[in-house]
Design a protein around this nucleic acid. Structure first.
Lengths: 339, 339
DNA sequence: TATTGCAATAAAAACGTTTACATTATTCAA
DNA sequence: TTGAATAATGTAAACGTTTTTATTGCAATA
């Protein structure tokens, strides 16, 4: 089971030995504590370099269980969704700048995995957590908030607890998309929703309905389909919409992967976009321009979502007492050629 | 700095106390050691449940420095590249099945970050590592191999050391793509390479050259451009190719992101694919069918690359003595409409 | 001179596990 | 009835840090 470890990591003690000081002094040098003789400091630093000593993060974490260890946990619902990857990039950059390491867990929309990874992150003594809970009543996450561990939620809030939150204007973003469709003259505008238990899905739906109403279009329940955030969802539900005896002439897709799925269906059927059916997506991708046709979409500032949430988290770790903030970022309608 | 921790994690000792046994016994129960009285075991399990005890992974790892801790490190060159995300998914699934946790580090093609994350992973006492080194002479990674820590390389090998390796048939994949272009009648076939220091890039180039030769096409150095694995690279280098006085009539792109960049350029110029210029990509994406036009591409079995490498790694951790293996997976030409 | 204060350092405990070793109780053969 | 073997459990050390507390030496003060 154990591998033969030719390479034996050097410990603080060996440094201390070689430098002729105690482990405490070495520790003080490493952590830039005051009250160490400049000569001693220099000598110790010399030995550290010689022995190529690197501190053992695990020991450090165990010792400093409830101080900061420069370690953040990130709980990602679906790493295959480019939106979350972009969010992650924002988090990474801020973490890196602030010398925090990251443990990234992707639970692939699987609640069992979410629970497991959450336990692992806690057990790893992370200083704080960035998470997108599976739904508003995610008890596991709610308990963590209650426990006092610093946490920032992205994309989705939690009911009944006060928590730092970074979201986008879902309702307005959806409204602008559907309003745009309506203004273009589309009459039977469908909505393929992501998981309906997500606040974001419901907010987008309400934007959809409001835009219909404001444009004098009647709401038709058969034009709303509920899926999740997987590609297959988009494939299947767009088929249903096109199979209607009175089919949709435009589709508003609730997220990234649904959009790609819907495009696949439309292309497979040989329909032309936007002539036969128009499409507009929530979530933009940098390669949307290379889609067929270039996709019109509501852009979420994903990178910034990540950046902001990491900033908030680090702030909270530094100052646990600061009041929670709820940050709402703007979306932007990227008009191209799909409607 | 420290946050107020209302929620105090229970330790083994508290379980031991409450169950009226020693810490050793509790540990034995947790680890399913034999030689514990069934009644005692039951009682301890009861208390564990009551107290909602979860073992502290950090303490465990410190104690068992050189035994297995069910923890793997993954070093990803670019999390924004869907290819690596798919590889990661393969790794995750195997890890999950085998009860290994993962620390995923994305170094975004930045060697400084690579070094930092490598140090962190070592310092975290991972049982093993899956990495795609930045190049064949990546000393940091080579040293790890030499140290005896179990490691599997994906996509890229290392010179001078014997290491488990999972790659694809780069030369053959490229050959099939370029051969296909030639057979379609394209005469001025360009190649936009990824980083030339990567073995995979060079292998693909050799496939490109061989296919040209076998089809009686002369090699023209001005039709080969060297970039990296970023989107911008594809944008810029395809522009250069189209600006040639005698421009390319077909482009073979060396990877995912280059392909998307090239598509962007071609669309911006209002050129038609494949009539004005054809394109074929190394790396397929599941949404390639939704591109304009549906992209013909060489598919790498990314998920399987991840799966295999994780399997190899776990094997090596279990049996450090087994001889290294080098696994080469097949590619597949996905013919659609871009050439 | 005796005391105090300070700077520099050391000693030792603690974090939460696992495990080698020690101890006790029980069973069974001689 | 002894003794040995075995099963069940306990004790304590160890992993590599940080930090509290203690110690030392020395300079400054009364």
């Amino acid at each position: 089971m154990a591998y033969e470890n030719d390479y034996k990591a050097v410990s603080l003690y060996e440094v201390a030995d070689k430098a002729g000081v105690s482990s405490a002094t070495v520790s003080r040098v490493i952590n830039n504590s005051p009250n160490v003789n400049p000569e001693t400091r220099l000598r110790v630093q010399q030995v550290i370099k010689e022995l190529r000593y690197t501190p053992n993060r695990v020991a450090k974490r165990l010792r400093n269980r409830n101080a900061s260890n420069n370690l953040l946990g990130v709980l990602i619902p679906d790493i295959q969704n480019p939106f979350y990857v972009e969010v992650l990039r924002g988090i990474e950059d801020v973490a890196y700048e602030n010398k925090y390491a990251l443990i990234v867990c992707n639970f692939s929309q699987d609640e069992k995995k979410e629970k497991l990874y959450l336990d692992i992150l806690l057990s790893e003594s992370v200083d704080g957590l960035i998470a997108a809970p599976t739904h508003e009543n995610d008890q596991k996450v709610i308990n963590i908030v209650k426990s006092g561990l610093p946490i920032v939620c992205v994309d989705r809030g939690l009911t009944g607890v006060d928590v730092d939150l970074v979201v986008v204007e879902n309702r307005n973003g959806a409204y602008s998309a559907v309003d745009f469709l309506a203004k273009q003259g589309y009459k039977r505008i469908a909505y393929i929703s992501g998981l309906p238990q997500l606040p974001s899905s419901r907010q987008r739906e309400s934007g959809y309905k409001d835009a219909l109403a404001d444009n004098g279009l009647v709401f038709d329940g058969s034009l709303v389909k509920y899926g999740d955030s997987r590609h297959e969802s988009g494939v299947k539900l767009s088929e249903e919409l096109l199979n209607l005896e009175n089919p949709a002439d435009a589709i508003f897709t609730g997220n990234n992967l649904i959009t790609l799925g819907a495009l696949e269906t439309i292309h497979k059927r040989g329909l032309r976009i936007p002539d036969d059916v128009a499409i507009i997506g929530f979530d933009d991708m940098y390669w949307s321009i290379s889609l067929n046709p270039p996709l019109t979409a509501v852009r979420q500032p994903a990178y910034e979502i990540g950046k902001r949430s990491a900033e908030l988290l680090i702030q909270r770790i530094t100052d646990p007492a600061r009041p929670t903030v709820s940050m709402t970022l703007k979306t932007e309608l990227m008009i191209r050629n799909s409607c």
